[in-house]
Every structure is written in structure tokens, then in C-alpha cells.
């Protein structure tokens, strides 16, 4: 099921946050949205998740306008993980994951088990979230999204504030989700992670899409200079690239 942005533009107050964004995203891939602070990455993710209505253009999910879909139907297809994983009340990992079944209105035991397994938290199922480390908590929040069994997983900075090990744990879970045929769309600040783990990268600058290509091309040294205004050089082999500031 493709996720398509068709000429999306949105203004928040007097500021044009997104300008004529067009992209057709494929399932089975990890797509990263990169760009400097204020480029419109989170706004684009919210619009694609159907949470923010664009002023112009539309989002199509499997050819159907997402704005026309009933909220529960949209929620069954698009799982969304916001930037700051909020949890107002302490609960067990399993109960947190079970919140992902709300759009379905069922217990979804099988899907919850699978979601916990996907993020390696099966043994933590009955542990209160308050007793988890930051990395475990991030994975528990991701399990909530997986438990919905959505066609698309949209996550805003899911690796922020995670150490190296936990970043790779979460990325492995997301890669596995893409391997199952889900679409995975991530907002990423870390260009090295995007270069090494994404199949495709969208680069935003001041609300405009300046690159939409495989990471080697989209995150070229020229693009980084143009968008981030930093002279940088990629070191290492493909799949294990590191960005060095010149």
C-alpha cells in the first residue's frame, strides 16, 4: 500500500511550513526524512499520518485520500509514534502495547505477543513502564505501534535520546517491520543513521523537498553543504558510513 504526498502545502500562522511536497513512498522500505531544525520534518510526518490537514494537496493511502477515511480505519492502517513518547499513567508493558488495539476494538492477544517479540520485550510484558530504562521504554512505545498491525509505521525521532546499542535495537525492529512488508517512515536527525539504515531519504529545507533518492545520492556532500551549510565528508564503506566535518 503506497503512501503518497500530492503537492502538499501548509501554512501555520504566517509561516509556510511545507511547500508543494510530492513523493510516493513504497512499503517494504525504510524511508527517512532529514533536514535541519525547522525544515518541516515533523509537520510532514503529521500530515502524512493524517493528523494535520494540509492547506493544499492531499495524502493518498493505497490510492484513497486519507482525509476521507474514518478515523479508526486510518488508525488501523497508519501507526504513528510522536517525538516525545508520552505516557500519562504508569502501566505494564503489555497494557501499553494493548493501547495499539484501540482502533480495532479487540483484545488482539496474538498481535500484542508479536509486537512484544518484535521489540524483544516478551520477558518484560508485566513490568511497569516506570521501571524500564530509556531504551526499553522506547521499544515498549514502538510495540504499541506494532500491536496495531498497521500497513505503515510513522515515527518522529524514534532514536533520539537512545544510546548506540538501543538505537540499533530499535532500527533492527523497524527493519524487520519493513521486511514484513510494512512501510516505515522515520524522521531522523542523525545523518549517519539515515545513510546506513534507510533505503530512501527525503531531504527537506525550509519546507521544500530538495532531495528524494537513495541515501548515497540524497545525502551527498553537496546536498549537506547546500542544506546544512556545513562542509562534511562521508568516511568508511557503504553501510558503515560516518560523517566527518571538514
Amino acid at each position: 500500500m503506497t503512501l503518497e504526498a500530492r503537492e502538499l502545502s501548509i501554512r501555520l500562522g504566517d509561516v509556510t511550513v511545507l511547500r508543494q511536497i510530492a513523493a510516493s513512498l513504497r512499503p517494504g522500505e525504510i524511508t527517512a526524512i532529514c533536514g535541519p531544525n525547522g525544515a518541516g520534518k515533523s509537520t510532514l510526518l503529521s500530515v502524512l499520518a493524517g493528523l494535520l490537514e494540509p492547506d493544499h494537496g492531499q495524502v493518498l493511502l493505497g490510492g484513497i485520500a486519507i482525509a476521507e477515511m474514518a478515523p479508526n480505519e486510518r488508525a488501523r492502517q497508519v501507526g504513528y509514534l510522536p517525538q516525545h513518547g508520552e505516557l500519562a499513567w504508569d502501566m505494564s508493558v503489555r497494557h501499553l502495547a494493548a493501547l495499539g488495539r484501540l482502533p480495532h476494538g479487540d483484545a488482539g492477544e496474538k498481535q500484542i505477543e508479536a509486537a512484544l517479540e518484535a521489540v524483544h520485550l516478551t520477558d518484560f510484558a508485566y513490568r511497569p513502564i516506570s521501571t524500564l530504562s530509556g531504551g526499553e521504554r522506547a521499544r515498549a512505545l514502538l510495540a504499541r505501534v506494532f500491536a496495531t498491525d498497521p500497513a505503515w509505521v510513522l515515527a518522529d525521532e524514534p532514536l533520539a535520546a537512545l544510546d548506540f546499542y538501543h538505537q540499533h535495537e530499535v532500527l533492527a525492529a523497524l527493519r524487520a517491520a519493513a521486511g514484513q512488508g510494512r512501510g516505515v517512515l522515520l524522521v531522523l536527525h542523525d545523518l549517519s543513521l539515515a545513510m546506513n539504515h534507510a533505503d530512501r531519504v527525503l531531504v527537506l529545507d525550509k519546507g521544500e523537498l530538495v532531495a528524494d533518492a537513495p541515501p548515497e545520492e540524497a545525502l551527498s556532500e553537496e546536498t549537506i553543504m547546500q542544506v546544512w551549510r556545513m562542509p562534511a565528508r562521508w568516511m568508511g564503506e557503504p553501510g558503515a558510513r560516518a560523517l566527518s566535518i571538514c
Binding site: L51, A75, G79, Y80, L81, P82, H84, A88, L99, L102
Partner: peptide, 17 residues
């Protein structure tokens, strides 16, 4: 209210109106 446990944006993404 259960959905709101995760914050407003996540709740709306779960179909909460």
C-alpha cells in the same frame, strides 16, 4: 481516555476524535 494516555497526537493517531 485510554488513548489520551499517550498524548493528544498519539491519541488522534489511534482514532480518538
Amino acid at each position: 481516555l485510554d488513548a489520551l494516555t499517550l498524548g493528544e497526537a498519539a491519541a488522534r493517531s489511534l482514532g480518538m476524535q
